[in-house]
Every structure is written in C-alpha cells, then in structure tokens.
Design a protein around this nucleic acid. Sequence first.
DNA 1: TTTCTATTTAGAATAATTCTAATTATCATT
DNA 2: AATGATAATTAGAATTATTCTAAATAGAAA
Lengths: 146, 146
Amino acid sequence: MSTATHNAEALAQKLSDSGLRSTPQREVVYDVLLRKRDHPTADEVFARVKSGLPTISLATVYNCLETLVQCDLVRAVNFERSPTRYCPNLRPHAHFHDEQTGKTHDIDLPPELLEKVSAVLPVGYDAKSVEIIFRGKATKTVASRD
Amino acid sequence: MSTATHNAEALAQKLSDSGLRSTPQREVVYDVLLRKRDHPTADEVFARVKSGLPTISLATVYNCLETLVQCDLVRAVNFERSPTRYCPNLRPHAHFHDEQTGKTHDIDLPPELLEKVSAVLPVGYDAKSVEIIFRGKATKTVASRD
DNA sequence: TTTCTATTTAGAATAATTCTAATTATCATT
DNA sequence: AATGATAATTAGAATTATTCTAAATAGAAA
C-alpha cells in the first residue's frame, strides 16, 4: 500500500471519527501539506493542489484546511498579521519564525518542557493548548525530520 | 509629580532614545494602554483616546501603537486572525486566551522558565523573542497586577 | 430511484490594516 | 522671531486574507 493511500485512509478515519466525509478535495489538500512541510499559506496550498485537482476553488481549500484543523491533523499558525500557515506535524513542537527569510521551522519539544510551561498557570486556568513561538534568525538550517 | 506626567516623561525618554518625538497623540495612546490593561484592539484604543483627543484619527492610533511597539514599551499580541491586541506589561509573561470570554490574561513567568524554553533551540537558531500563548478557559479570574 | 444532507463552487462581502498625498507641527539654524 | 527641513498626523482610498452566500453537485441512506 502506497504512502498516499495510507495517508488517505488515516485521514478518512479521522474524518469519520468527526462525522465528516472523505472527499478528493480533502485528500489532496492533506496530501499537499504532507508532501512539502514548509508551512504553506492557503494560497500556496491552493496553487499546489490545482495540479492534482484543477477545478478546486480557493474557498474549498480554506474549508478543507479548517476541517483538517478541526480533526487535529493539522495546526494553523499565525505570525503577526501575515496569512495563516498550516503544519501537519503532530509531534509536540514550537515554531521558530526566521525574520530574515520569513521561513518557519519546527522545533521539537521534550514533553516534560510543555508540562513545566503549563505548570506556571495559576489555579483556575485550564489550558487546552500551549503554543510557543520563537522569533529571530536561523544561521544554520538543518533538514527537517518527518 | 503625577503618574501620568511620570509616564509621559518615561515615554519621551524612550522615544528620544529611538530618535522619535514625543507627541500628544503618542502620550494619550500610551496613557490609555496603561490605564486599562485589558489588551485592547486598535479600534478600542481609538474609542478611548477620542475622549481626550477628539480629533485623532484611526491611522494615527495605528501609527502610535506601532511606534510604541518599536520602542519596546508595548507588546502586540495576535490570536488567530482576530485584531491585534496591545499590552503595556513589560514583565516577562505569557498570554492566556480565554476562548469562552475572548479575554486575555497575563501570566507572569519566572525568568528561568524562559531560559529553559530557549534552551531547546538547536545550535544555529538565534531567538530574539519567545512568545507563549495558552488557550483554554479560566474558571477563576484574579485581579491583575500592575 | 428518491430523498436528504454534506460538500463544493464562484463570486460578493467583510474587516483589519496599510497606503497615499496633503496638511500641520516641531526642531534646529539663522 | 523667521526660515527651512523633517517628522507626524490626517482623511480617505486601497489592499488583502478570509468569510459569507446562494446555487450546484455529490454521496449516503432509505
């Protein structure tokens, strides 16, 4: 079984868990995110998706991305007011935003660090998620892991 | 000397450090941020500022806020795609975004935590800033410190 | 099939922010 | 105090990412 098929089935599973249907549009959008993990914007996803599905609309790309975020298959990241970027990395990680290049790098986080960070919350604060964003410049770039 | 005067002078100092002028608009905008630390949007700042300076324009409010951010007197915070919010708290802190109320709470951070977090960065990543955002619900609300 | 609902689609609408060009204020020199 | 140079403000237009709308299509269930 090919990787794409595998992903499509994992996606179908996650979707049906949420009572949603698997569609070619959702599959192709998810596949595009998995293929090139450079935190693309919706517009960039739209451009890449069109080669496989030339009739897809931008609205659908937005819809699909939102759906994937709802299913916890994809994270949406925002840097200032620039367009939302999408990230299929499900490992605990922070984002490093390189201000020179505009590129975003995933920084793996040891799970105990997230616990330590969450431990600063006073009683009465119940966090569903923690997001960590670094901003600066990356002098070296290391190939990203899967 | 009044607190407002004191703030105005601190502001004037910071501005001139950056080669910028102190203006009534900048003073009033900064004063509004200090007076009510509820992370207002530019529109909310605009509304509050107008009582003291009825002829100010929204563009100027945006300009002033941006200037204050450049001077490191104010932090801009973004939650998803909602309007940018502004925060004059200079202590190291995270933000807790209450998804029910939409309110933002400052969470003080022990400085050593920020060091621990930054320590996860691999060689070659030089972070100028670290931002931590919690999302969830706050069951209790404690009066915020200054 | 037929029906019901989910999804997609194109294009219009929205809204936060930025831009533009003109005016006004302020500073440094004369 | 007047002058000239630059900084800041202003109103309104423009931009742009995103969401909305209403109609068309597809898919599942009966």
